[in-house]
C-alpha cells in the first residue's frame, strides 16, 4: 500500500509572535510610556498644530460651501434670536447687579468660584484627538511649562469640556466628559438633584443615579455639583433631552446634550487655580485649599 508522502505544514509564527508581544505591552501600565510620549509630543507638536490649523481651515471652507444655501433662512432665525437674547440679557444684567449687591452684603466674594478662577485661566489650542472616535480625548498645546497639572478642569465659554489627565512639557492630554470612561458629579440646576454624568461611546452622555420619586423634565439644565472635588460647582454641562424611567429599576436616568459642541472645538481654557482633591492626582494636603481665603489669588 502506497503511503502519501508527508508534507510538513509551515506554521506562520511571526504574526502570532507580534500579536502576543503587542498584547503583552497593552497590559503594561500607561505611565511606563509617558517619557516616549512626552518626547513624541515635543518633536511633533509644531507639525500637529499646523495640520490641525489646515484641518480647521478646510472644515471652514467646506462649511461655507455647504451653508451658503441656507444662509438666508439662518439669518432671519438669528435676527429673531438676537432680539430675544437682548431682552434676556437685560434681565440677566439686572439679576447680576442684584447678585453683586447681595454677595457684598453676605461677604461671599472670597469664595465665589467665578472670582476664584478668573485670571487663572490658560488658553490652549487643540492640536490632536485620539486616532479613533471610540475614545474621546484631546491634546492641547500647553503643558507643564505653562503651569498645567493633572486634574485641572478644562472649560470653554459654553461649559465643561473635561479634565487634564496627562501632562507633557509643552502639551497636555484632556479626557473629555463624553468619553465612556468619564464620570462627572453633576446636579440639575432647578431641583438640585444630584447624579453622575457618564460618557457613552457613540451616544449622548447620560446622567445616572437620579432618584425614582423625583420629577425630571426635558430641558432641565445640568451643572457640575462640585462633589468629589474634581470640578468647581456650577459649571454648565448640558441640558436634559430625554428621561429614561423604568419602574423596576432603582434609579432613573437622563440623556444629556452637552452645551459644548465637541465636533467643532478649537480652543479651551484650563482652570489653573482650581485644585482637584481627587486622590488620583495626589493627596489634597499637598495642595492649597481653595476654600481658604488666604490661598486665593490676590489674597494678602
Amino acid at each position: 500500500m502506497l503511503q502519501r508522502p508527508r508534507t510538513r505544514r509551515r506554521i506562520r509564527w511571526w504574526p502570532i509572535v507580534i500579536v502576543l508581544l503587542v498584547a503583552t505591552v497593552v497590559l503594561l501600565n500607561t505611565r511606563s510610556v509617558d517619557a516616549p510620549r512626552d518626547v513624541t509630543a515635543r518633536i511633533t507638536l509644531s507639525l500637529q498644530r499646523l495640520l490641525r490649523q489646515a484641518g480647521n481651515e478646510l472644515r471652514g471652507a467646506i462649511g461655507i460651501v455647504g451653508d451658503s444655501t441656507t444662509l438666508r433662512d439662518r439669518n432671519a432665525e438669528l435676527e429673531q434670536a438676537v432680539a430675544q437674547l437682548t431682552v434676556e440679557n437685560l434681565r440677566l444684567k439686572e439679576i447680576e447687579a442684584e447678585n453683586v449687591r447681595l454677595r457684598g452684603l453676605l461677604q461671599f466674594r472670597d469664595v465665589n468660584p467665578s472670582f476664584t478662577y478668573k485670571g487663572g485661566q490658560v488658553v490652549g489650542r487643540i492640536v490632536a484627538n485620539e486616532p479613533t472616535s471610540i475614545i474621546q480625548s484631546i491634546l492641547i498645546d500647553i503643558g507643564s511649562n505653562n503651569g498645567i497639572e493633572p486634574g485641572m478642569p478644562v472649560v470653554t465659554e459654553r461649559g465643561l469640556v473635561g479634565r487634564v489627565t496627562d501632562v507633557y512639557g509643552n502639551a497636555a492630554r484632556v479626557l473629555l466628559i463624553i468619553d465612556s470612561s468619564s464620570n462627572v458629579n453633576t446636579m440639575l440646576q432647578n431641583t438640585r438633584l444630584r447624579g453622575i454624568l457618564r460618557g457613552r461611546a457613540g451616544q449622548l452622555p447620560i446622567m445616572d443615579y437620579l432618584p425614582q420619586d423625583q420629577s425630571i423634565l426635558v430641558g432641565d439644565i445640568v451643572v457640575t455639583s462640585g462633589e468629589g472635588g474634581n470640578f468647581p460647582v456650577g459649571i454648565p454641562v448640558g441640558q436634559v433631552v430625554e428621561v429614561e424611567q423604568n419602574d423596576v429599576e432603582m434609579f432613573q436616568r437622563a440623556v444629556v446634550r452637552t452645551t459644548v459642541d465637541f465636533d467643532t472645538l478649537e480652543t479651551v481654557l484650563v482652570v489653573t487655580n482650581f485644585v482637584s482633591s481627587s486622590e488620583q492626582f495626589g493627596p489634597p494636603q499637598d495642595r492649597e485649599d481653595p476654600q481658604n481665603p488666604a490661598d486665593l489669588p490676590g489674597a494678602p
Partner: peptide
C-alpha cells in the same frame, strides 16, 4: 507579511500619539 510590518510601524506611531494603553492601536492594525 509586508502589510503587518507596515501595521506595526503605523501602530507604534499611533500609540505614541495617543493616551490609552500602549499597544492597543498596534494590535488592532496588525
Amino acid at each position: 507579511r509586508s502589510a503587518v510590518i507596515w501595521a506595526l510601524i503605523a501602530g507604534l506611531w499611533l500609540d505614541l500619539l495617543s493616551s490609552r494603553s500602549f499597544g492597543g492601536y498596534t494590535l488592532g492594525l496588525v
